[in-house]
Structure formats: structure tokens, C-alpha cells
């Protein structure tokens, strides 16, 4: 299949909604199929790549942090970056700077970058198709 460029727009904060998982599944599917993807993450989704997400233990069930193995969205996104590198695709993850500042989540994992709403427009213009996962 001919390589395409897609833009995916995410809005949901980490841990809040199944849309996050669906959005990341779509990124994964696009990369597996050899396409390039730009993710524009704004509103709560600007925190998906926050480097300080930290797993915790589960005192109720007597599990320490390692045993609890709490999933973290930043690790899922890091895995997508690794998949893109391995497959020769481009994953460009842009966090809206306005939303990043509001939420104080300006420390990103490697690969994610700060941008602005103008980057969403530029990405959509440069893409073959765009999908917005609205939060309402």
C-alpha cells in the first residue's frame, strides 16, 4: 500500500477515557501499515507524554509498585515511537503549548514536542486524511 500521512487529534487526559486507547490503537495500526502519523494532542491529552507519570503500589492488595505493574500512557507512547523507528515511519507527536502550560506538564518523554494550534492546521494541510477524536 502506498505510504500515506495521517493526522490524529486527541483531547482526552490520561487515565480518563477509552478514547485514549482507541486513539493509540489507531496510531499503532497506521504505523504497522507503513504510514506516517502526526498526533496533535491538546486539552487533557497534552499530558499523555508527561515524563513524570509514575506507577504506584497497591496497598489494599499488598502489591509493591513493581508487582502492581501499573500501566502508564507515557510508556505506551514511547512504544509507538520505538515502533515507528523500527519500521522506518515518522511519528510526530505535538503537544499544544497552551494546554501544556495550563496543566504544568511541560516535561515530555523523548520524541514528543511542543507546538501550537497552528501546527494542527499545518499537519492537517500536509496530511492525506485527518481524524479528530472529540471529547464530547
Amino acid at each position: 500500500m502506498e505510504k500515506k500521512k495521517f493526522t490524529l487529534v486527541l483531547m482526552d487526559a490520561p487515565f480518563e477515557n477509552a478514547r485514549t486507547v482507541s486513539g493509540l490503537r489507531l496510531v499503532d495500526a497506521a504505523l504497522r501499515k507503513g504510514h506516517d502519523v502526526t498526533v496533535f494532542a491538546y486539552e487533557g491529552a497534552a499530558a499523555l507524554t508527561f515524563a513524570r507519570q509514575t506507577p504506584h503500589a497497591n496497598a489494599v492488595h499488598g502489591r509493591d509498585a513493581a508487582q502492581e505493574d501499573h500501566p502508564l500512557p507515557r510508556e505506551w507512547v514511547a512504544a509507538l515511537f520505538a515502533a515507528a523507528r523500527a519500521g522506518g515511519q515518522t511519528l510526530d507527536w505535538i503537544n499544544c503549548g497552551l494546554c501544556v502550560d495550563e496543566r504544568g506538564v511541560g516535561e515530555f518523554i523523548e520524541g514528543a514536542r511542543r507546538g501550537s494550534p497552528a501546527d494542527l492546521w499545518k499537519a492537517a494541510e500536509a496530511s492525506d486524511n485527518t481524524l479528530v477524536l472529540g471529547a464530547k
Binding site: 500500500m1 482507541s22 490503537r25 489507531l26 501499515k33 492525506d128 486524511n129
Partner: peptide
Amino acid sequence: IDVVIDQLADGRKA
């Protein structure tokens, strides 16, 4: 979910 990507690649309005 690959179908969604295939149809986006086909230029479908989504």
C-alpha cells in the same frame, strides 16, 4: 481497527 486506517488511506471522509 485496521479497517479504519485502510479507509482513511482510501480518502474517506471520517
